[in-house]
Amino acid sequence: MTTTSRRAIVLGVGGLALALVPPIAAALNQPFYVDLFRRMMIFAIAAVSLDLILGYGGMVSFGHAAYLGIGAYAVGIPAFHGVDNGFVQWGLAILASGLAALVIGAISIRTSGVYFIMITLAFAQMLYYLGIGLETYGGDNGMRLTRRSLFGPVDLTNPAVFYYVVLAILLLFLVAGGRVVDSRFGMVIRAARSNEPRARAIGFSPFRYKLAAFVIAGSMGGLAGALLANQTEYLTPDFMHWTRSGEIMFMVILGGMGTLFGPVVGAIVLLLLEDVLSALTAHWQIVLGPILITVVLFARRGLYGLLAGAPTRDG
């Protein structure tokens, strides 16, 4: 089976399964599941965007939550000043986080290894403290989002409508992501991850391609942040905390780095485990830790690699 047709099948089946969540939740009279799965999909979008640079581009960005935070504040701050238009808010989220990624990337991509990790982490922490400093917008307590983004007739206060908007964005990103990683552009960033000296020797200057990928991933992360602010109807600097960056990175590693659908699986499984385990015990992280370590040690290509047996980085 070709990669393309495998992807189409996974996308179709997975998309359909996710689309059935609201009616099933309604039938079971468990509206909570709509909320939970919507949250999973929002984090899946963030994880897919991180995987583009982490899994395919080999850039271990440990500050991806920064874009989540920028996206959330791009919704919260205009809303605070009475601008509720969703196109303005989400557009601002995409632009501002893309711009931040441009600056962070232009500096960090010149380094590699531990330095890259530390610089991206440092930028995210800087933004985290900037958020704490924004007294007008609640400082470290954050602030309520008084109303969700307005999109004319599309009413996000309806849980199912909001759910399908998130699902549509996720599917769109997966389709587009699949095209991008196989395109000329995708081949360059994957080649640079695979063997950068070789990529340079055959004539590629990887820097600008990696930077472009970094900006794309940042913008996607920003949109995820805008969705998250609408999801929680609350935003705090904690959106940008380094533990949040680590959580998104875990989703990618758990699901499978360098696979298209792995981060989605990772986001769903991690949040599900969190949900189930935290109901059982207050010390759920003690149980979650070993599970994560086991997956990292024994499933090099993550859960999706185990499920799909994806032999290459193409799946």
Binding site: R179, R184, F185, G186, M187, V188, F204, Y209
Partner: peptide
């Protein structure tokens, strides 16, 4: 190589 859509 700023071509994003067509499979290489």
């Amino acid at each position: 190589s700023f071509r994003f859509w067509r499979p290489a």
